[in-house]
């Protein structure tokens, strides 16, 4: 059974400047970024949330700057995944690349309220809202991105490719 998490629900267009303001972009360490996650949007989030809580947004989550520090900050805050009606493309790509699951579900974004208890079952492709007794479908990832996520992200793929390249060079000096 998927674990039950508390939802932190926000509106449309949660941009990467409020996820992690630029003044903190002097490190790429999720542990240093995490404590400032969402502080511009909701000052109660950094101290108020528990690791395992889930961020839920509306349309166009993660719009704006390409800073990978945004999904890194979310990861650093101990948030296991993000649910939204839709995601901005660079954020979506960055999240998959660093292994932060992002689930697109307009129904979940519309149905879930602040503080609801929810459980995500990625395998089944569903989100259960314990508070409201509702269930929502997750829009499946494109197969290519699912494979990338399953394989451990883009850097795992790069490592594999570099190893193959070295093996080929070693075999044919």
């Amino acid at each position: 059974m998927a674990r039950v998490s508390v939802a932190w629900k926000y509106g449309d267009n949660v941009d990467t400047d409020v996820i992690i303001p630029a003044r903190y972009l002097v490190t790429g360490d999720p542990k240093e970024l995490g404590p400032h996650c969402l502080e511009g949007l909701d000052p109660t989030f950094p101290a108020g949330h528990q690791p395992g809580d889930i961020i839920v947004g509306g349309k166009n989550f993660g719009c704006g700057s390409s800073r990978e520090h945004a999904p890194l900050a979310i990861k650093g805050a101990g948030v296991p995944c993000v649910i939204a009606a839709s995601f901005a493309r660079i954020f979506f790509r960055n999240a998959i690349n660093i292994g932060l699951p992002v689930y697109e579900s307009p129904d979940a974004a519309a149905g879930i309220g602040m503080g609801d208890e929810i459980a995500v079952d990625a395998r089944a492709g569903t989100i259960v809202n314990r508070t409201r007794g509702e269930q929502y479908a997750i829009r499946p990832l494109p197969p290519f991105m699912q494979e990338l996520l399953d394989a451990g992200g883009l850097m795992a793929r790069l490592k594999r490719e570099l190893a193959q390249e070295r093996a080929a060079e070693g075999g044919n000096p």
Binding site: P71, N97, G153, L162
Partner: peptide, 14 residues
């Protein structure tokens, strides 16, 4: 188009 740092790392290498 804009990408993140991991995509930049991959493109720089490959």
């Amino acid at each position: 188009t804009g990408v993140g740092s991991t995509d930049l790392a991959y493109a720089m290498a490959t």
